[in-house]
């Protein structure tokens, strides 16, 4: 199996693509941190089984 040679466009846009990738990764980390904070802080409660059924 051979890999196709890198297109000239990919070289030109490398910086932009890396930037977008890093931003997406940072967004994922932020959502994870937010979720963790919300779940572990006192104001978050899982609904009771009965309430879910209602």
């Amino acid at each position: 199996m051979t890999f196709r040679p890198e297109h000239e466009l990919h070289k030109r846009r490398k910086g932009r693509n890396i930037g977008v990738g890093l931003m997406l990764a940072a967004f994922v980390v932020l959502v994870l941190a937010l979720t963790f904070t919300k779940v572990t802080s006192g104001d978050f409660e899982l609904p009771k089984a009965g309430e879910v059924a209602d």
Partner: peptide, 12 residues
């Protein structure tokens, strides 16, 4: 996918 030579590629 190619842009004409000399055309500006928008940067981040």
């Amino acid at each position: 996918y190619t842009t004409p030579a000399g055309e500006y590629d928008t940067q981040l």
